[in-house]
Design a binder for these strands. Structure first.
Lengths: 171, 171
DNA sequence: CAATGGTTTCAAAAAAAAATGAAATAAGCA
DNA sequence: TGCTTATTTCATTTTTTTTTGAAACCATTG
């Protein structure tokens, strides 16, 4: 078979690394988008996840071919959900980033920040519903009562289940 | 206090119903958006969830003040995740829709259709990663091995946990 | 304390997602 | 079958989200 300049390199492991990197980026782009996070955030995390050394922002932007604006924003998001941490590299002013590979922490932060607040407001809303219904003797009162009851159970179950789920994900 | 034509009606429970409806729509718009579904889908489900009688498409569009195009699309989505079902009303040609209030079914369909396919493709991807790595004796091989191992555990855990979660949500 | 390199911010552009409305299709009824 | 009403489809428009790029900001160091 014909040697191909782009895939055969001196060390031969460089292309393997690139392959892993690409699979990783692809994987995390999908996964982050499942969590509602933008493409660039998935790309950055995917790159860092398979990087043995911490990378500075400008290298991340260059490797992914995205703007430093996006990169800065994406790193901010990833920091906020504790999906990355920065490592100090002596003699280099730039911040260097490493992927946090403990998914447990990642998910529990996500659940805590994104899901639980909604559950909180749901509780208030259900109280309001009960108040509205309480004073109104409509014919279909039973129907409404049951619906409110189901909503209540849903939010209660979620409130208990989600934190438990986060704990189970000790990977 | 001054009587207000729009909120005081002959039965007085009409406004209570409207209040519940609004809270419900608001609730489900948020919840559906958490699942990545468009606003209109949440509105439709929220309306149906607190409707004691099945509603036809044109009434749904009118009450929510959205186009029948959106309504048709939204109903299609909701049907596909089994969140609603249609009821036959004698003497009326139109399809009438009811909310499926068993959240368990709703979630398990959602998990099965939206999440599990991703997990499937993740398995393939991980096999590819292992193949790439296997033939490459790099120095950092241990690092890559560990990362791949973690990914594998994540997908395995999710594959086991998510269906279990769906079952637990018998509300 | 200026100069340089690194990072953030944010208005504008680009891209993606959702809603509209009208035409096409289907489905019930006379 | 033809007429009427209900529903779907889809090109276009609108809205929302994401990315860009340049200016502002910060921090280190000569």
């Amino acid at each position: 078979m014909a040697p191909d300049a782009s895939s055969v390199t001196s060390t031969s492991s460089a292309s393997a690394k690139r392959d892993l990197e690409i699979e990783s980026i692809d994987f995390f782009v999908r996964m982050m988008s499942l969590l509602g996070l933008p493409r660039s955030v998935g790309e950055i995390y995917g790159l860092l996840y398979f990087s043995p050394k911490a990378l500075p922002m400008d290298q991340i932007a260059a490797r992914l071919d995205i703007s430093i604006g996006s990169t800065s924003q994406g790193l901010k998001t990833l920091r906020s959900i504790k999906a990355i941490r920065s490592a100090y590299i002596p003699g280099d002013r730039r911040d260097h980033y490493l992927a946090e590979s403990e998914f447990r922490r990642l998910f529990s932060t996500f659940i805590k920040d994104e899901i639980l607040p909604h559950l909180e407001s749901a509780k208030d809303r259900i109280s309001r519903m009960e108040k509205v219904l309480g004073s109104e003797p409509t014919e279909e009162k039973d129907f409404y009562k049951i619906r409110i009851e189901k909503l209540k159970r849903l939010t209660q179950a979620s409130g208990r289940l989600l934190p438990a789920l986060a704990k189970l994900l000790k990977l």
